[in-house]
Amino acid sequence: MKGELSAQEKLYRLYAGKMWGVCRRYAMDAEQAKDILQEGFIVIFEKLHQYKGKGSLEGWMRRIFVNLALAEYRKKRLFFYDTNELPINLQDDVSEEELEEAWEFSEEELMEMITSLPPQYRMVFNLYAIEGMSHKEIAQMLGISEGTSKSNLFRAREWLKKKIAGKKEMVQKTLKLKS
């Protein structure tokens, strides 16, 4: 039992940081991310024997965390307001240059932008843009239509562009104040 716990701790130390990133991207906030991280590692420890060595261990673990995050999202979905009606001001759109400059943003800043997305946008954006899934797969996983998935992805991108533009503006104001 003691040896088992020691092996589990080693596995945790090796992957906790990476999986924390996955949880943060899907979770509403740090507290929810912690809950998913805990739950995910418990599931992994209990189902580790099911890992047959096909594909990387990290990939297998990542799928578990993504599935847990989606389950959490589905569980809480009825509490969310329908944000399809949320206004998006396209005048705040980011220019091509600004988008290039966005590469200078830190990972933490980009993470904050993702976590600020409304849940349904965040889920679709994560699954499509980062996990590389198709709209068909996303529609099946989230129980929505492909059209909704596409629409949510579009809105997520717009939202992020707006955030990038806002961030740039804030940085420029700060620089002006300093000068």
Binding site: K18, I114, I130, K161
Partner: peptide, 19 residues
């Protein structure tokens, strides 16, 4: 999409200290 690429490349291997 360029937004997708930005976030994927920056965040797909994001790693941080856990409490």
């Amino acid at each position: 999409n360029r937004i997708d690429r930005l976030f994927r490349e920056k965040l797909s291997h994001y790693e941080a200290e856990v409490s």
